[in-house]
Amino acid sequence: MAKWGMVIDLDKCTGCQACTTACDMENDTLPGESWQDVLYYTEGEYPSGQMKWLPRPCMQCEDPSCVHVCPTRATYKDHDAGGIVFIDWDKCIGCKYCMIACPYGVRFFADEKPLVEPDLKEVFAGSGGQLWDPPGQSPDTDYRRGIGVQPKGVVSKCTFCYHRVKEAPEGVPDLDEDDPELVDYVPACVRTCPPKARFFGDLDNPASNVNKLIGNKNGIRLKDHTGNRPQVYYLGAGAGIPAFQPKS
């Protein structure tokens, strides 16, 4: 089985948040909750302030802290599904221990306060245990893997769009959005990224484009000292608005 990995090139990322929107729509995440955030950081002060950003999906760690702490074994790393970390919503009790343990902050709990008024969760009130019924809901639902609209009281997270990726033909090195044969199996954030800053492929396949990118452009993993070994790599020298240089 493949080991799915993602490469995000920060030299190309424009911080447009199209990935965030695509993810929200693809996965019907709750209003105010995004599995794929873009974080913004500022440094320095006017007039030499800088702003940088960092798109942050779940890192699908090879040694995930969240899995180690889960008191009900609801969250697990599925090696048969490309090493994606899932949450079994049938087992999750919403204790949020995984959220405490995750060094990347990519797990979410449904009790987030509404960010917009009126609260869309009330406008599209949920039925059948779902927290909301979004218009045009995706047909994919798999509670054992945390796919679908979540029920009350569970933690949710990025699934690398497993409902798409699982349909990919066996043994493909990369899921490239430019390949018409494969475009339907590409995760939503990768598919939608306007500057094509994201790449998705098999980290176990030495011939894959993601492995070449990581090797040639010195891909790094965030917080590598924790030993979590993410399956998401970053390239480049930082996406952002360069510091203002006054003309002398």
Binding site: L39, Y41, T42, E43, P103, G105, L222, K223, G240
Partner: peptide, 27 residues
């Protein structure tokens, strides 16, 4: 968590240099 992400090499990745902690309330 957001700032913790920069702590283990993330800052250098984004800003290309080590963080300057002297800035009063900077990143």
């Amino acid at each position: 968590k957001k700032y913790g992400l920069l702590a283990g090499g993330g800052y250098e990745l984004l800003f290309g240099q080590a963080p300057d902690s002297r800035a009063p309330d900077g990143c």
